[in-house]
Each structure stands twice: as structure tokens, then as C-alpha cells.
Design a protein around this nucleic acid. Structure first.
Lengths: 228, 228, 228, 228
DNA sequence: AATGAATGAGGTTTCATTCAT
DNA sequence: CATGAATGAAACCTCATTCAT
């Protein structure tokens, strides 16, 4: 009904695109478990449903774009660190991961969903484009890692592989922890019902696992303590 | 459809329950990407839709039961190995994982889905029950591992933690690889379009990553070669 | 909400199917120009939307079924006439056509739409099945016509061809007349605005055209007068 | 897109109008079954969507205008024939119809659609205007026909009626044939599946039907052969 | 005159679950 | 116990049209 100010200039369009992403991100934050409908996203952004489709070809690609923005932030800080810091250690890298990936409640649920979307729903061309954009960042970060850390078996691409495996741990452990904690967050006293094998805390376990992994990969073991 | 022979005895019921699981598993194997509808499962089992609900409270818990059966098979072999073999190395363990988790096209897609279900859709009580059953197996396998491997920092629960982290790697890397390969399996010449950072093969990368992880966790590094 | 009496027996199902057809037909009669949504049809039949889809695979095939029922009525009377009447003339046949095809406001709009649906939207298998059912009736009627009328060039299939061409005239002239009268029915005094070449009445023109056509096809010209 | 040279002169406007019609016609030719969206038409014409609405009040009237241009071409040749040829026979007339109506894949689908549009969607005033323009051509052609053919019952308007009825046959038979062939063009071996009553070819059946019709209407039967 | 960004109504279909028989 | 008919919510996306620029 109320026609919003039209985005004619390219920068206005970018701004509007961002507004839609903001709206979707907000809804995702409010209820990470469910995927808002396009109608809800549009309403949250103060736009009509059709307008969302002017900026994103499908709901799935909108979600992927929300995810990509978060990933970009992570890589921005990560690359700044590996390219800017005079020296680097595990804790500095883990801090970046914690800030962008582990602590925001949005990131990991969305990442898990996006992997599924790319595997099934999103057109291959769009998936590939996303991956190319990610690859650029990933390789830059990986190269930075390689400069800082003498890997046991130095080889081009080892930095990227290291990041990939760390990400797999972050993602895999989170999925397991989400399953464990997922349905229980509301049940009072749920914690003590968990069998010991499942009684672990994601952030702590993740840090321990990553440390252990670095210990096996990086020649110089991380300074701080030992694994768990 | 004619009313089937009624399952009155407990063993008849178990048999029918298994028939439903078989049907669901078969459909999942035929098309791992999609989830069959309850009607399809019933038809495949030669039963009526309502009958499925006599044996499983919801579609989700049916899926979880299919998954659990596969997990049981894995643990059966794993426990047999750690409790039966005179000595143990990485390759023997990895072989079990490969047989049950990595190679069957069914396992990992279903596992990923079940983690999501447990986090959101399945009643906490059912999730918890599942986890208790899993915990028993997990702890037995973990204890077996601990007996075989002198961990760098021996401690109760380290075997379980090791398995958990390996599983996280298996799952996390698979999700990433599924996203990469997902939409591209049909596109000819898709492989060379992938950026180098995404051009990796799941089975190889998984083995390399697990080896690297063991190297950092187990005092005696695995005999075979070095990490990729 | 209110679960209707369930149609378990085959005859109950037929009855319910008919009820849905009745509902759709009624809505079509109320507003021949628009196609009711499935939700409206369901409501009119006192059923839930999903129930309609238990009886018809798609909205299009529902429309075709409504049409088929009307065509069946027409053929029922036509075949009764050609097989039962001791003698036959144009007027008797035209009366049947008038009763079933021309006068009911439902028939021709629906027929025109169904031709379009069969050409574009309905699965070939369903179209073919419909055509086979129609063919049986058509050939029986055509054979009856051939027995009664000594065609100028007797040959098997001439009766069917005659009916086909008459139907083409009925349909083609109706389309033209609907276009002419269509938007004008509400405009007072519209008739005199029509140019003479378009100022004709469908029923009269149709009868005249059909008579003329018979005159050219049937050896013995129709008794009543001459064309228009 | 850059703002196109503005059409200020009347002839520029006509040119642009024609360009839009050309674009729509081309798209219709490319895919006679579907109706291109306004956006597609505009793009094909190298214009913006809004510009189309400067030249046509609605999508429907644009389609009607495309149709009218084709009808004009037909009448142009038809009138040239009836007014220019020293003598006239069925074959000469049928050749014109074949060239303009039957053979171009565009004409009949569009005509059928336009009849529907005029009946439902197009403002009565626009329909009426179209009909007046058509009437002028139709009456001129009809008058020419009357001069050439001694109809069985000579009367003013008989030429127009003759043309009308022929057009009804052309249109009605086409609709039936489109329904029959519609979904089957791709199915291999579809032809032999058709019941005999539906196994006919439009061009042949049309010619036979028109000949039969002329035989009943024109005193002197057409020279070539007999009806099918 | 030309543009193209914004609108928002509109309708189909699926399918998990229930419950009368 | 077994059946399967009935339910009805849920959400996508298209596209003709408008109108601010």
C-alpha cells in the first residue's frame, strides 16, 4: 500500500538489500529453530512480499546471503589478524572464531541449514558462485596461516585444509551439542538427566578439540596447557 | 487393502516394527536426498498409513529409529573390535567407521537430519531416551579405546571424547562435502569449475583429517604414513 | 473440523465424487466466466480442500470430469435417439444438441476451457483416457447416424466426421458469439451498437449453419425450409 | 536502461507501437502455448515495462492488437482476391485462409485466446471498436463473395454469413485438434494410441469440412473432387 | 515520454496426523 | 489391531499494474 522510497541508485539498492538481510537475520535470531516465511521477512523489513523477490531470487538464496554476510565478517577479522598481527597463536585465532561463529546464536544453526540448502535446493550456479567468493577469502586466510605456522608437513594448501578441518569440528560438534541441548533447554533440571557421555559443554569441548587438533597439526604445540 | 494378520504377540509386533523400519530405510536408500512421506513408507511396508502410527508416535521418531538401527550396527562392530582384538590401530578403527558410516549412502544424510530433528522436532523425552541408549554403547566403546591407547593425558572419559571428536569430523566434513558436490553431480565438467579450496574428496580428506587428529591425541602416532 | 461421514464403500465414494462434481458445476453455473478455486469447490461441497484432492488429482482434471459428465448426458440421449427412433431427421438431432449443448449456460464455456486444458495442462495419459471414453460414445452415435442417413458418399466413419464437424460449428460459432455478446450483456442498448456483420443471434445462426451443412452432406435435404 | 529516444511525432509513436506488437508476436511465435509476460514483451522490444502501458492500456488489449494485425493481413489478401480476381473458386479462397489462418502457428491459438479475452477481460468499448473495424473488412469481403458466387438463396449478408460459418469451422476444428494433439506431440508412438474417432489431421479434415460446407451452400459445387 | 522499483492479491498442492469403522 | 478417508494449515512465487523519478 505504502510505496516505500524507491531505490534507484546502486547504493540505495545495496542499502535495501541489506535491510532485507537485516530483517531476515533478526527473525532468525528471534527464533533460530524456524525459518521465517518470506511474508514475515518482508513485513519485518517494511516491504511488500514481491519486493523481496526483486532482490533475491528465492527464499533459499536469501538465507544463503544472510549466512554469507556473517561469514564475510568472520573472514574480515580473520584475514586482518593473519595478515596484520606480528605473531599468531591458537588463542588469537580461536578468539576470532568464538566471536563470529561460536557465540552468536545465529551463526551455526544457519550454517548447518545453508549446507543442506546448497546440497539440495539452491541452483548449482548460485552455489558455485558462493563457493568462489568464499574460496577467495579462504585461500587468503589459509595463506596467512601458513606464513605464521610451520606445519609439520609444509605444503601449499595446508592452511586451507587446516581451516577446513577446524570448521568441520566446529560444525560437527555443534550439531551434536544442539541435538543434545536442543529439546532440553526448557525442561528444568534436564542437565542431570543426561548420561555422562553426553554431558559436555559445547564451547569447552570445542576449544579442547581444536587445541588437540592443532597439537597434531602444528609443529609447535600451542602454548596454553594441554588438551582438555 | 485387506486387513493384515494382526500382530498380537510381542514378537509379531517387533517383526512388524522392523518391517516398517526396513521400508523406511529402503526408501531412504533409494533417494537419500528426500524424505519419503508416511504414506510411501506404509505402502512400501504393505501396511496402511494409520498402522505406522501404531508403532511410531511420529514420522520424526520413525526416522530416528531407522538411524538408531544403523548406529547400533556400527557400535556392534566397533565394540566387538575394541573388546575382541588383541591390538588395535587407527586403520582398524577407521575401517569400521568406513563400513558403517562413510560408505553407506544412507548413514550420513540421515544422521545429519536426525541431529536437526532432535534439536527441534522430537520430544525431549524421546531424545533423552535415545541418548541414554547411545551413551551405553558409546561408553563401552570409549572404555575399550582407552584400554588400547595410551592417551597423552590419560583420564576417564577420554576415549568417549576421542570418539565424539572423530564423529564431529566425520559429520562436519561430510556436510561441507555434500554442499559442494550436491548440486553438481549431474553437471558435466563441474569438477574443474570448483575453486581449489573446495576441490577435495570427502573420503580422502576425512581419512587425512582423522589421522592428523589421532596424531595429536594419541601418544603413539599412527603407523601408516603421515597426514596428507 | 467436522469430519464428514466417511465414504468407505465404493458406491459411497462414487456418491462423494458426484457431490464434488455437483459443487463445481454449481459454481460454474453461478459464474461461467471464472473458475472457482479448489477451496471454493470444497466449501460448496461441505468438504475440506484436501478431500477434493482425494478424488481428483488436480483442479484441471476436476473440471474435465464436470465436462465429461455433461457430455455423457448428451451422448446418452443422442444414442438413445439414433438407436431407438424409427426414423430420424435434422430437427430431432438438433433438439438433443440444443437441450444439452446450446441451452445450458454451462456447457459451451466449459467445453471451450476443457479443450484448452487438454491441450496444455492435463497429463497426456488423462487426456487420452478421456478421449477413449468419448470415442466409444462417439462411434456408437456416428454408427447410428450412418444407419439413418444415406450420406452422399457412404463410408465408414462418415457419421463420426459429420458429428465432429457439427460440433466444430457449434463450438466455433459459440466462441464468436460469446466474444460479441460477452462484454456487452450488461450494457443497456448495446445491441444496436453492433455492426450488422456482428449482429446475429447464436441459436438462430447455429441452426441455420447446421442446416446448411446437412444440406451439403446428407443426400436428402432436411425437410424444414431452407437455410436461414 | 538508458531512456530511449522519445517518440514525439505521431509517426514515431506508430513505429514504437509496432515495435511492441512485433515483440509480442515474436514471443508468441516462439512459444504459442504460453503468454509472455509484459516484462518479456518489453525486454524483447528493448523498452521498459512501463512504456508498454503508454501504448496499450492492458496486456489483453495488446494481445488483441497483435491478433488484429494478423486478421488485417488476412483480409487484405482476401479482399484483394475477391475484388481483383476475374473468377473465383473454393481453392483460391482456401489458399488465402491457409496462408494466413491455418499454417502460421501463431494465428489460431491467438484467435482462440482473443475470443476468450473479448468475452471476459476486455472493456466492452474496446471490443466493440475492434468489431467495428473488423466489420468493415468483413462486409467488404462478404460483398465480394456474393458477387462471385450465386448462392442458393441470394440475399444481402449471405456472403458475410458464409465467411462466418467457415471461420467457425476453422476455429472449432482447430480447438478440437489442438486438444487432441496437445499433450501428445512428444510421446513417441502416441498416434496409434488415439482412438479412430480422434485420429484425424486438422488440415485435411478442415479442407474436407469446408468443401462439404460449400457444397451445401454454393449452388455450383466446387470443381475439385468430392468431400473427403 | 520513459523508466523500472514497488506492490500484493491470488490459488495450488502436500502431507502429517486423527479417528470412525 | 488395522484401516484409510478426512482434515486443513502452511507458504511459495508470479506478474499485471501503478507511479515516483
Amino acid at each position: 500500500m505504502a510505496v516505500r522510497q524507491r531505490a534507484i541508485q546502486a547504493e540505495d539498492k545495496q542499502e535495501r538489500r541489506d535491510a532485507i538481510l537485516d530483517a531476515a537475520e533478526q527473525l532468525l535470531r528471534d527464533a533460530p529453530e524456524r525459518v521465517a516465511s518470506v511474508a514475515e521477512v518482508a513485513q519485518q523489513a517494511g516491504l511488500a512480499k514481491g519486493t523481496v523477490y526483486l532482490y533475491f531470487p528465492s527464499k533459499e538464496e536469501l538465507l544463503l546471503a544472510v549466512h554469507e554476510r556473517r561469514v564475510d565478517c568472520f573472514f574480515h577479522d580473520l584475514i586482518a589478524l593473519v595478515e596484520g598481527a606480528p605473531s599468531l597463536d591458537f588463542d588469537m585465532l580461536f578468539a576470532v572464531a568464538r566471536t563470529h561463529l561460536v557465540e552468536p546464536p545465529l551463526f551455526l544453526p544457519l550454517a548447518a541449514r545453508c549446507f543442506g540448502l546448497m546440497a539440495h535446493c539452491i541452483p548449482p550456479a548460485a552455489t558455485l558462485a558462493f563457493q568462489h567468493r568464499m574460496a577467495a577469502r579462504l585461500e587468503r586466510a589459509g595463506a596467512g596461516i601458513e606464513r605464521h605456522f610451520p606445519l609439520r608437513t609444509p605444503a601449499p594448501g595446508r592452511g586451507v585444509a587446516l581451516l577446513r578441518r577446524c570448521y568441520a569440528l566446529i560444525l560437527g560438534l555443534w550439531q551434536m551439542s544442539a541435538a543434545i541441548g536442543g529439546g532440553l533447554c526448557c525442561a528444568s533440571g534436564a542437565a542431570e538427566e543426561l548420561p555422562p557421555a553426553f554431558a559436555w559443554s559445547y564451547p569447552e569441548e570445542l576449544e579442547a578439540a581444536l587445541r588437540a587438533f592443532w597439537q597434531g597439526t602444528i609443529a609447535a604445540p600451542p602454548a596454553a596447557g594441554d588438551t582438555q
